[in-house]
Design a binder for these strands. Structure first.
Length: 597
RNA sequence: GCCCUCGUGGCUCAGGUGGUAGAGCACUUCUUUGGUAAAGAAGAGGUCAUGAGUUCAAGUCUCAUCGAGGGCUCCA
């Protein structure tokens, strides 16, 4: 972390303390939770005597400014555990944290510390004392009041657990200067403009309807073609990499999920059952059990058949909780570009490498470079299947495959699937929220549960290892992130309408249709804007729709069998013969280029 | 699911302290046939998310339900 980042951190953390003092003064009896600095700001969690509304924020902010004006120095002090207990006797959450520190835990989620704490540090300014690691600025006056703003109010569970009381979280931001604050707020506004939900509607890609239900997107023609092209591209690439596609439908008997273990782990996230006399069915929330069943039905497998790679573009239905739904990035009907690779233990590394190559190729095509890779491992507690030996084996296999491929990853304990560790590719949306896209997972557990086998070289039956893998994750989520990444201006190969023909006057309509026919003949997606509008209006509308090419045709173009080509960027390529335009566009599309010419 | 906020014609939004709805864009029709980011005119379109309640009277107040947004939790 550089000095700049460090000083911002202590600035924001100090602002959090000032916020806490202000709230404590305005709402006596408030109990304090955690109040850290975060990316772009800070927050503080409170248990308040009454519900807080955004209308309260100006008063709190005013109080904060007064504390800042007081230029109270921040002072650090160390206390013994007992002294800390006395200090925070009327602050139950602080007390809870003192005990956690004494037990040798640290942080909000109780990560293990090097050793139990014998002493804790507190920071004080003015009338306010907080249990805190620091650091802080010298005095409250060092926080620029003009660069401070409280942003929002949210609920947040103590220590992040649903089982604990819910506190009120106040989010705020502070910067070194008012100018930086303004720039930040401006960035937020700009980001909202490229929000995929807004652009999806403006570009006519997809809609949500109360009539159909929450989290169930409806794709208009322009959205469907993008979906189709995305999936077609992954399908083509998968085929090229030696994956085979299968189809396993939308419903499955519930019993299968009891066998696989999904019933115990994810029953809450499945849609309610459909009951047909004695038999209970579920909408498919995942493919693995279906693919393993298919593997079994096909017959006996020889080790010579492995690896066997079953890919499927299946729409899955997951009963996400109401408050979790978000545009296309979190839906109840999602189309996964899923795949299950049945292989031997010896093949794990090469199969991982193959999947990784595929993922990288696809992400690269979309110019997706801003992602990180998380190695998700099992945590101490929870849903994980107990079989240490197999977990160790799977984790080792995954790690060595990542290392062999030079993948730069970070480790996250407690993020694994119940059946094994995974490598997740995580990207951010315009508002900074992180979403898992691609994933590669090693599974030593499920194949045995569903009785998958292959006959080994020595003639004995063995259980294959299963590698779960998704390239873009889900079409819906990836599309959402793509829309934001391109701000709606898709590369030509993905653009719903690649070229719009604009006849200048009615007498050019016929030629415009001719041009359109020529281009359609060459498999381009084109439209003719024959509305009774002036050319300027048509160009404006096409540009706002981010159509890559605008082909204006008038008398001159008709005479020359040409079109005047304008790019959505505003660049005018002037008139060119149709063949020349076709050749240019062909080259751009075939290369899946991000350029327009 | 939980905390907070919001829900007015297809879209973007007006509608102080309650008295039965407005604009721009889009749409339809007409005029205009115009050379690189919005031609002009007329018209049609809303039981103000839904359901109760308070009131002589509710888009405007109360409650509930549904939906959306921000956050938390969860994410095979």
């Amino acid at each position: 972390m550089d000095d700049q980042a460090k000083s911002l951190l202590s600035l924001r953390h100090s602002a959090a303390h000032i916020l806490a003092q202000a709230v404590l003064e305005l709402f006596p009896g408030t109990k304090l939770g955690f109040g850290p600095a975060i990316a772009d700001g800070f927050y503080y969690d409170f248990q308040l005597p009454r519900a807080l509304s955004p209308d309260d924020l100006p008063a709190i902010e005013a109080r904060m400014r007064a504390i800042i004006a007081g230029k109270h120095p921040f002072t650090r002090e160390e206390l013994s555990i007992d002294a800390a207990r006395a200090q925070f006797a009327d602050q139950p959450f602080k007390l809870d944290q003192v005990e956690a520190l004494a037990r040798g835990e640290m942080g909000e989620h109780g990560e293990a510390a090097a050793q139990p704490a014998a002493r804790v540090s507190i920071y004080a300014h003015d009338q306010f004392v907080d249990l805190c690691r620091g650091p802080h600025v010298a005095n409250t006056g060092a926080v620029p009041a003009s660069a401070l703003k409280l942003l929002s109010i949210a609920g947040a569970y103590w220590r992040g657990s649903e089982k604990n009381p819910q506190l009120t979280r106040v989010y705020g931001t502070v910067w070194q200067s008012k100018q930086e604050l303004d720039e930040y707020l401006w960035r937020l506004e700009e980001a909202k403009k490229r929000d995929h939900r807004k652009l999806g509607q403006q570009l006519g890609l997809f809609y949500f309807s109360d009539e159909v239900g929450p989290g169930l997107p409806l794709f208009a023609p322009k959205g469907e073609i993008v979906r189709y092209l995305m999936e077609d591209y992954v399908r083509e690439t998968q085929t090229r990499y030696g994956y085979q596609h299968v189809w396993t439908g939308h419903m499955v008997k519930e019993d299968l999920y009891k066998k696989s273990g999904h019933y115990d782990n994810y029953i809450d996230a499945m849609f309610p059952p459909m009951v047909d006399e004695e038999v209970v069915y579920r909408l498919k929330p995942m493919n693995c059990p279906s693919h393993m069943t298919l593997y079994n039905e096909i017959g006996k497998h020889s080790y010579r058949d492995l690896p066997l790679r079953f890919a499927e573009f299946a729409t899955l239905y997951r009963y996400e909780k109401r408050g979790e739904l978000t545009g296309l990035t979190r839906v109840r009907a999602l189309t996964q570009d899923d795949c299950h690779v049945f292989c031997t233990e010896d093949q794990i590394e090469s199969e991982f490498t193959l999947a990784l190559k595929l993922v990288r190729e696809v992400l690269n095509t979309y110019n997706f470079t801003d992602y990180k890779v998380r190695l998700s491992l099992r945590g101490d507690q929870g849903k994980y299947v107990k079989d240490d030996e197999k977990w160790d084996k799977a984790t080792k296999a995954l790690k060595s495959a990542m290392d062999a491929n030079g993948v730069d990853y970070f480790v996250a304990e407690g993020e694994a699937a119940f059946y094994g560790p995974k490598a997740d590719f995580i990207a951010k949306d315009v508002l900074g929220r992180e979403w898992q896209l691609s994933t590669i997972q090693v599974d030593f557990i499920q194949p045995a549960r569903l009785g998958c086998e292959y006959i080994a070289e020595d003639g004995t039956p063995r259980t294959p290892v299963l590698i779960h893998r998704a390239v873009t994750g889900s079409t819906e989520r990836f599309l959402g992130v793509l829309i934001e990444q391109f701000a709606g201006a898709f590369p030509v190969w993905l653009a719903p309408v690649q070229a719009l023909i604009v006849p200048i006057a009615d007498r050019h309509n016929e030629y415009a249709q001719y041009v359109a026919a020529q281009l359609r003949e060459q498999k381009f997606r084109v439209e003719v804007d024959a509305r009774n509008e002036r050319m300027n209006a048509k160009i404006r509308d096409a540009t706002l729709q981010k159509i890559p090419y605008i082909l204006v045709v008038g008398d001159k173009e008709e005479a020359a069998q040409a079109a005047a080509v304008r790019l959505r960027t505003g660049e005018d390529l002037k008139a060119m013969p149709l063949e020349q335009f076709i050749a240019m566009a062909r080259r751009v599309v075939d290369a899946k280029s991000l350029e327009l010419k």
